[in-house]
Amino acid sequence: MVSIRQLKRGVQSPKMVFQHLNKLYFRNRYGKEFENGVNFMEEDWDNLLLLDACRYDIFESVNAVDGSLEKRTSRASSTVGFLKSNIHNKDLSDTVYVTANPQLVWKSEQFSPDFHKVVNVWEEDGWDDDLQTVLPETMVSYAKEAAEEYPDKRLLIHFIQPHCPFIGEFGREMVENSNIDFWPQLREGERDIPKDVLLKAYIENLEVVIPYVDELVQCLDGKSVVSSDHGQLIAERSFPIPFVEYGHPQDTYLPNLVEVPWLVCPFDERRTIERAKTDTEMQSGNVEERLKQLGYKV
């Protein structure tokens, strides 16, 4: 069913119509959950470090974290889809979710989250007002605290990079204001930034976060895996309507949107993991503002 809001946006933007039609194609073929994807929460790990919107091919080319790299297929092409298809109605009382992404709170009524604990790093204390994001060093600090406080729980650690805003020196200089409506503006032709510039800024954003991922892996006990919730399109043709697309539209199961890294890092001993129920507070007064600053339409 198409809403009035979607119809209005379609009149204003023909490419929104193309995007919606492509989504319908993939939904009709695969359903709202990509049937070829893996449920990451059912995989074998003690610590799962997610790099938001990280493509497998680019991670493979720049990664400096030690480990055995494989390619995995995500069940979704967006964070909302990833959370819905991996955590909905799951007993995750053995897992602490440390996240720089506000989507779990924003869409909590859709996910029925059952984590032991959720640490929303994007709240005031973890948010960088100048760059309008959560910095990777901040995530490392919060993740280390969670590891100390919950030694018998799995850790799901969700970095925001390489997702925009671009925080590297090149990205900040060459791609100004890479947050609010950034990818939609590019898709609609409201901004004109060459693909090579976008790609360089994206790669730099990944290179910025990798040393912090490596630092965290080195200090966490147990089996650590580095992966991503979904990939990214950067001025690439969508399908079946072949218009130039950007970002990571939901329910669009193209290879560069669902192929993600799965880096299994060396480890000595596993942690003993135990389940324990607790109440998880999901309310937040600034979630909508944070999502806008990270480039999401809300």
Rank of each mutant, 00 (worst) to 15 (best):
A146N: 07
L254F: 11
E42S: 11
D196T: 10
D44C: 11
Q232N: 13
D229N: 11
L21I: 12
M174H: 10
A276V: 06
V80Y: 06
N47Y: 05
E35A: 12
E289D: 14
I203F: 03
N89A: 14
A53R: 00
K153W: 04
E190I: 05
G295K: 02
V225I: 10
W122T: 04
L206R: 00
Y202V: 01
L135Y: 03
E35Q: 11
L51M: 15
V105G: 15
V62Y: 14
D229M: 03
F26S: 02
Q232R: 14
I203C: 01
N22E: 08
P211N: 10
L156G: 04
D192V: 09
D152V: 04
A276N: 09
D46L: 11
L198Q: 03
D91R: 06
G189R: 02
Q110A: 15
N47T: 08
E109T: 14
R72D: 07
G231T: 11
P151E: 08
N179R: 09
R271N: 13
A146Q: 10
D229A: 08
H20P: 00
F159L: 06
D66L: 12
R237P: 08
A235R: 02
F166I: 03
Y97N: 01
L83T: 01
N22W: 08
V80Q: 12
W183V: 00
R9S: 13
W183M: 11
Q185P: 01
E169S: 12
Y253W: 13
E109C: 13
V62T: 12
L257P: 00
P211T: 02
E204I: 04
E215P: 07
D114W: 02
Q12S: 15
H230D: 07
K71L: 13
D192S: 13
G168C: 08
F59R: 02
E215F: 09
V62S: 12
S227V: 08
D129A: 12
S93D: 14
Y142C: 06
T280N: 10
A64I: 15
E124R: 09
L50I: 15
K195A: 13
Y97V: 00
L49N: 05
K195N: 12
R271T: 03
K90V: 01
